[in-house]
Design a binder for these strands. Sequence first.
DNA 1: GCGGTTATTTAACTTAGGTTAAATTTCAAT
DNA 2: ATTGAAATTTAACCTAAGTTAAATAACCGC
Lengths: 232, 232
Amino acid sequence: MESIGSSSERVFSQSVEDYLKAIYKLQTEDGTVSTTVLAKKMGMTPAAVTKMMKHLSAVKLIDYTRYYGVRLTAAGERVALEIIRHHRLLELYLCQALGYGWDEVDAEAEKLEHHISEEFEDRIDRMLDFPSTDPHGDPIPTRDGTVTPHKGIPLADAEAGEIVEICRVRDSDPEVLRYLSRLGMKLEAVIEVTEKQPFNGPITFKIGDAAHSIGRELASHVFVVNRATEAA
Amino acid sequence: MESIGSSSERVFSQSVEDYLKAIYKLQTEDGTVSTTVLAKKMGMTPAAVTKMMKHLSAVKLIDYTRYYGVRLTAAGERVALEIIRHHRLLELYLCQALGYGWDEVDAEAEKLEHHISEEFEDRIDRMLDFPSTDPHGDPIPTRDGTVTPHKGIPLADAEAGEIVEICRVRDSDPEVLRYLSRLGMKLEAVIEVTEKQPFNGPITFKIGDAAHSIGRELASHVFVVNRATEAA
DNA sequence: GCGGTTATTTAACTTAGGTTAAATTTCAAT
DNA sequence: ATTGAAATTTAACCTAAGTTAAATAACCGC
């Protein structure tokens, strides 16, 4: 009798995993993913991307039509979500168990996500009591690849007068995250939108007593839920 | 003004690190390390080893004399010890913080040791209260590369009648470690050597009430200190 | 000090994952 | 329908790290 659950010990290269993750992230926003966009995201030349696309296509992780971009197959998506799950679990673990700041976790998780075992994944998952979001409010995919999309809207789209709660920050730049922290913008912080300048101008708001304003671009990376709406 | 302590972000490949670690371990036992022995340890062909030796020599991590084997330079030893430090800190962390068994930690640490940051290293070191030995009793090198050799002798060399305490088990095979656990042979277990069969025969001993015997070979991987001697 | 076994190195080749530069395809705009 | 810019792919090349097979050096016994 053979051992049954002898799980999946490192089947894909780090490079392959990184490509799949990048494709996943791009396609959830843009549908299908072009070579150039992917190349930009990966910090590589388009030529390198094309070559990898052929490989991923050959091993059935993506559907690839020459000149027309790429989508993950079900198999490819499984792999991508597994890596993203590793990443987000690690981020949360680093915060909770080791006292990392939310600005530091991305870089560390980026490296470790490819190298932890299923055992490790399960243990930190249990230790964190099966969490559903990471320190930036991103959903942690479940073991079987389900990911519940978050409910918030970009702060940039909130109206003046609204009172909202921060539920997600879609940015991993440590500088940006530290800046936001300094303004008191952490997860679950409640803020009141006081003003929106026209022509894509800055958004002004209050957190507690303090008033701040940030640019529209940055505000589009901060996701919020309306406290009234949320209750409904 | 440039940032000063922007520490050493991944300078060597995993492969290089693995070679250096292997050389370190072999040379502390055998002095100088031959191509064939290293090849065996690394699970590679001698030809691959020769090639890598040339490279490591070129970048001054080893002293290499064609046909005569290899020794680490001071720089090479620093790198090796850094990796070993990572490995052993990780092993202990996995046991203490995540509940791993001592038979499971080696494999996991083997993968992670190459990918953790100095930050991570420092944090788990602190969390473990700056430990000096790992779950198998191996010394953890300090940050500056000092390693205090352990004091024990092989159980195989203990005399009948001696009462000794287990201080180190030099074996990472999970099967072996589980077997030893089943016999009650953990670190700090006290055992009484009752008999040594001649012609390299088995060693018989008592742990608590239970009596066991193990082969001389295995007994040479278990290190012990004499309780009387230790006090002195 | 000769000769054969063994250890070691060299040579030629492989694969994965990159690069640059040239060729090709797509697409939008006339 | 054509054309030219932008996107994409192809071709030729590079490096790191491995392989096998052949050549060479070291060492041990006589």
